[in-house]
Design a protein around this nucleic acid. Structure first.
Lengths: 194, 194
DNA sequence: TCAAATACATAACAACTGTTGTGTTATTTA
DNA sequence: TAAATAACACAACAGTTGTTATGTATTTGA
């Protein structure tokens, strides 16, 4: 087990503690305890807590981004958009933990311009990915012509964000099928009538 | 200046510190300093920090809820729905601070079932309000028949949440007019074609 | 007017925080 | 095999946290 693997274990431990107890209770000692080790491990792999937090944030983000990219290559037409968005939704219990952590990070970033900038950057990547898919499907005649693609990309992300935020607050708010139906209905407005 | 007025001042000080520096830096001492007083003031009006946080949360929520109710009584038909949702959007700079605080609270509530339950309750109030408006407008023939009203109410809230979350991360993400256009387009799908 | 309650200020408390330094094993490298 | 580096454990650090107790003016009430 190499350096990066062990480092990833630390990140995952931090992720678990955050999902379970919240980010402000994710102390160095709490992470070490979750690992079954001492704080020496944590400080060995990360200069300071900010670096650890950013690494954990990146892991949560990178996971879904990669999955969405894979989705974009496997599916065609309307299904490509649909599956990409479904992937980001908290359809099952496990996905909700990712959103818990994500929201904890975002709330923690309020008032910390450095962390907010990190969020902004990741969101930019997401926006570019969605916009790229939209443009491609527009070229194929699947997506309506005459749309403001960047705005539509942001709108799709906002849709998923809003649903997920509601789920974190109240998991019973939307059933899996209701989540999917909302996404489908939004997509109906973007796709060519043909 | 009575007890409740002074208490409200403490809450507003806490609100300002949270919007500026984040919830975890909103300590008793920071609030007191914002007030230009000592921590004795804070402890005098609130048993503990949780009670203060919940009070501040309630103030943020109550403000928009009351404004939305007033909106519901002033406007008719489609405009009623539109204006209520516009009210909750972070259209101007000031509204964004409310959303900052709201997101900071939500992130802080992750892993704290007691605070999450408070969020759930407030959201329930919002849902009921929106559902009530939808039912009324449905009776007037403005809103389509055959809709699942509770789900549609949640969807409207999710729409506003998603947009607002994006704005907090990147204020330049949506212009005021783009925010309004997204809400209008969503409403188009709910209203009778007539 | 005199006691009591209110509205604070101040200080101390123990608990917890991130960080740093030092010590101790393993593991690798030469 | 000897030296060096990595991978930890552990302890101490100064700072911050919420909470509580105690003190002191100020206002209120009878």
């Amino acid at each position: 087990m190499g350096f990066d693997d062990r480092r990833a274990e630390v990140i995952q431990a931090a992720w678990r503690v955050t999902a379970r107890e919240g980010l402000d209770r994710t102390s160095m000692r709490a992470i070490a305890q979750e690992l079954g080790s001492s704080t020496g491990v944590v400080t060995h792999y990360f200069r300071n807590k900010d670096e650890l937090i950013l690494a954990a944030l990146e892991q949560v983000f990178e996971g879904t981004i990669e999955a969405m990219k894979a989705c974009a290559e496997t599916f065609q037409g309307r299904e490509r958009l649909e599956q990409m968005l479904f992937l980001a939704l908290p359809l099952e219990g496990g996905d909700r933990d990712d959103w818990k952590v994500w929201l904890a990070f975002l709330g923690y970033s309020v008032g910390r311009e450095r962390l907010l900038e990190a969020h902004r950057q990741r969101y930019g990547i997401l926006q570019d990915l969605m916009a790229q898919v939209l443009v491609e499907l527009q070229g194929a005649g699947v997506v309506k012509a005459g749309l403001e693609i960047p705005v539509e990309a942001n709108a799709l992300i906002a849709l998923v964000d809003g649903i997920s935020m509601g789920i974190v607050i109240n998991p019973a708010q939307f059933s899996q099928e209701q989540q999917r139906a909302l996404v489908r209905r939004h997509l109906d407005g973007l796709l060519s009538d043909a």
